[in-house]
Design a protein around this nucleic acid. Structure first.
Lengths: 219, 219
DNA sequence: TGGTCATATGACTGTCTGGTCATATTATAG
DNA sequence: CTATAATATGACCAGACAGTCATATGACCA
């Protein structure tokens, strides 16, 4: 948890620091992110960091917390779809919001992505629970889908969760590559459109593949 | 490329060194893997490493080369399936061989997995081409599937490649988790069975999902 | 035995890291 | 104007790292 001193900081200074930290932890994984580089970039003394945070881990967990907050904010802002709709329509909404997060907060999303895939050299209960939460959320969705008859009854629920989770994790990267957007350039440049027909088509197709598969049913 | 000195080494010593290096690069990503720890583990002087390899990068690329060789060996040993069969049957065979690699050479597979997902602080043309090759291979498979009419004609080929590639990359991890195998314990312990009916069922289900989707066709 | 070559060694160098802390600066309040 | 508290600073510390190199060891041959 950041100290009171950190929250007393003038808004602009606090934002500048946070931005620099996000950049650093987006470019490097935990072990290789450098406090020294952060303070050099933002132009403050190293000791100041330790007035704001207990240590490197504290700063890092704060950034992850920020990411979670921002993503949840997006999920709440986007009006939740009609609860009566098919699981697959709901899934489309969910995937789209996830991808939106990656386009609105690209660097922060990169920090979070690293947290899920990369090495973290310490054990944090909160982080573990964050990982599990994403999985559990999809699990509950699949159970609903099975109960409603949207999902074929012979489908192994765990496998379904695996499929949906893996694809949703990587979808943002696919969109970026598909749109020819350089992930590194994203963020400091202009905001990117995420509501284009082309991106909508990707969601449509992916949900269609999840529902009906790649196979040709006409033959 | 390793030096001649390295290949002149007694078989047991060379193997011991390689094993220790694989362990280190499986446990840590490139930047955090430590030459000092490798030599400590195998009980030789640090200078010796630099008689065998030009530098850390040279050693690392050699390990990746090893991984590629071992995987290709498995692909060749497993008799290739009937070329006339459906794309999905072929896919099943491909996924199964990939997962087999992860169970037969778990630590080496982990090194390769890190190479594809983690940060590598240098640019290597060969590594880039290895990544592209996996993608291109699946791409060709999808094109075939479309041409043969196995894959529905309205499917976006790039999206299909994305789906297959993502799932094949993560499938091994899913199997390990599903079977309750600790990835860290794997390798130094006893060999694990990969030809169980339970694992076969996972392949069946995944291919079924890829072909027909999760949706319920009866309603 | 002596000489030549391949190999092994580990102390050492330069560089980077996270984190500390005595000191300096600034803001607030009486 | 002064006293007190809050904040900022950067030299410094201990530890880890990749990589070097003068020296030592051992194998092979004449």
């Amino acid at each position: 948890m950041p100290t009171q001193t950190f929250f007393n900081l003038p808004e602009t200074k606090r934002q500048a620091f946070i931005q620099a930290a996000i950049e650093e932890f987006a470019d490097n994984d935990y072990a290789n992110a450098s406090i020294t580089r952060i303070v050099a970039r933002v132009g403050i003394a190293k000791g100041s960091v330790y007035q704001y945070f207990q240590d490197k881990q504290d700063l890092y967990l704060y950034l992850l917390d920020l990411a979670a907050q921002e993503k949840l904010a997006l999920l709440r802002d986007a009006r939740p779809p009609d609860p009566g709709m098919s699981i697959f329509a709901y899934l489309r909404w969910l995937l789209s919001t996830g991808a939106q997060f990656q386009l609105v907060h690209p660097r922060l999303a990169q920090v979070a992505y690293r947290a899920l895939y990369g090495d973290i050299p310490f054990h944090d209960e909160t982080l573990v629970r964050m990982k599990a939460a994403a999985y559990a959320y999809i699990g509950q969705l699949v159970e609903q889908g099975l109960a409603r008859g949207d999902i074929a009854p012979d489908i192994d629920p765990e496998l379904a969760v695996f499929v949906i989770h893996s694809l949703s994790m990587e979808l943002g990267n696919f969109i970026l590559k598909r749109q020819g957007i350089d992930p590194a350039a994203l963020g400091q440049g202009h905001m990117h459109m995420f509501d284009t027909p082309e991106i909508a088509r990707i969601f449509d197709q992916l949900v269609r593949v999840l529902e009906q598969g790649l196979g040709n049913r006409t033959t």
